[in-house]
Design a binder for these strands. Structure first.
Lengths: 253, 253
DNA sequence: CGTGTGACTTGATCCGGATCAATGCGGGCA
DNA sequence: TGCCCGCATTGATCCGGATCAAGTCACACG
């Protein structure tokens, strides 16, 4: 099938921006929101949580939020935009570790080494909440809900790390990838069937340990099978059920 | 090269048992030891840490420490023996997630889902320290060193999860695997050049996303290149430097 | 406006590792 | 003792996806 010009693209989906608050309120879709709610919005501790957060951005596409080797001082929640994390080995080969959507948190893997083990690069214009980690763990000692939330976020990321571990076919990987993204958008309140891929085919391929050509072929095939509609980076899932069958081996139950 | 009978095996390496204590003292090589030391062996809090730990075992080879779906109540530190964690998808295909040596901790990935997302299976006779997690996090709230230690262990496991992520050749994977094991033995005070592989070739292959035959071939080739000596499951690293060159892309800097 | 550049797609070919197959060895068990 | 079964090794063949190659299109820039 022919490459379609962007002129014929799908209608724009609603822009995924996770910021329903101002400087003194937290994002309703943020990964920390449940910790905040559990602690109670009106308690004095919350004021402290407010103190240790700092809004940073905008970062433009391609700009670094942090770099490999930077000393670890804070974790970042994505307020708007998308981020990839990646390692670059000494031959200069890139290794994409993950993509992070509004409401998700980056930097947790830097706690142990005390330096960031990877780069974080904005894929489009992105804004963040920056949480000082020393302040955060001090707070966690006093508010069990905050501590528990940190444990849960860390543990959750452990689970998702093993998602792409198995030796699976290109079809399985791509299907699981699309559904994983869809689910993560849906859980933050965005459309779970139509969204924008803010990363290039090359980034997807790198993340899935495939060649960019293979990703392109699989997407084309999925389209010809009426499983998806895709034009450029605008994606619609036409048959999530069938996709789930294909990707089941990589997906949570 | 021919398969060698076990009769001609290498001399036995020292048995890796991480238990230098009795019922009232903690293992010096245990993952928690630094938390204990930081908190001070003589402080009253330590008595509480003692209370929430329970020695369990022995488990024989093939027995489960926990199973997928079991409610999460505790994490386990390996005192002696070796464990693999694995997921079994609904087609019955096994997926080995990791191997755990004396001093290491299993169960951290169950915090978020609140149920174990995988099985833990003993590879040989194994003993554990069982830490009640609710008690542990309560203690963590009062002793910052314990909290920090939990954060660090979780974050550390995040890092190691991405070790086998990349698309790398069989040689790279096997070399990195051997060196990773060696390093983990060394850091616990065991020999970092000669040790026993408690897992089968099939388990190694599964973990590395290779076929068992491929692992066998690579090991044979490494032997013929004088990089290792291996007879059955007894292994000696003859040229760690060269192995490190081969596996560098997968190894921490 | 033309030109260059980078992202994407599609086709042709190649190769590393999977799969199939055969064999040796050792341990458990009757 | 003899049999069976699982692990390990080695050889032969096959295939999915990587790589090489060519072309389209969008967009930035002089």
């Amino acid at each position: 099938m022919q490459y379609k010009p962007m002129a014929g693209r799908l209608p724009e989906p609603p822009s995924p921006i996770a910021d329903d608050g101002d400087e003194t309120r937290f994002c309703g879709t943020c990964a920390f929101s449940s910790a905040c709610i559990a602690a109670g919005y009106d308690k004095p501790e919350l004021a402290e949580l407010q103190c240790l957060v700092e809004h940073v951005g905008p970062f433009r596409a391609g700009e670094h939020i942090f770099r490999t080797g930077d000393p670890f001082r804070a974790i970042f929640a994505v307020r708007a935009g998308t981020v990839k994390t990646r390692m670059v080995d000494k031959d200069g080969r890139e290794q994409v570790l993950g993509f992070y959507l509004p409401g998700e948190v980056i930097g947790l893997n830097a706690i142990y080494p005390e330096h960031f083990p990877c780069d974080a690069v904005a894929l489009d214009t992105a804004y963040f909440c920056r949480f000082s980690f020393p302040a955060m763990s001090a707070l966690a000692s006093r508010i069990p809900a905050v501590q528990q939330h940190l444990f849960r976020m860390l543990s959750k990321e452990l689970g998702s790390a093993s998602l792409l571990a198995g030796d699976h076919s290109a079809d399985e990987r791509v299907a699981a990838f699309l559904l994983d993204l869809a689910g993560r958008y849906a859980v933050r309140g965005f459309s779970g069937t139509r969204f924008h891929l803010s990363m290039s085919r090359g980034d997807i391929a790198n993340y899935l340990r495939l060649a960019a050509e293979t990703v392109s072929r699989v997407l084309s095939r999925f389209r010809s099978q009426q499983l998806i509609e895709i034009e450029g980076r605008e994606l619609e899932l036409l048959n999530p059920k069938k996709l789930r069958e294909i990707g089941q081996a990589l997906l949570p139950e």
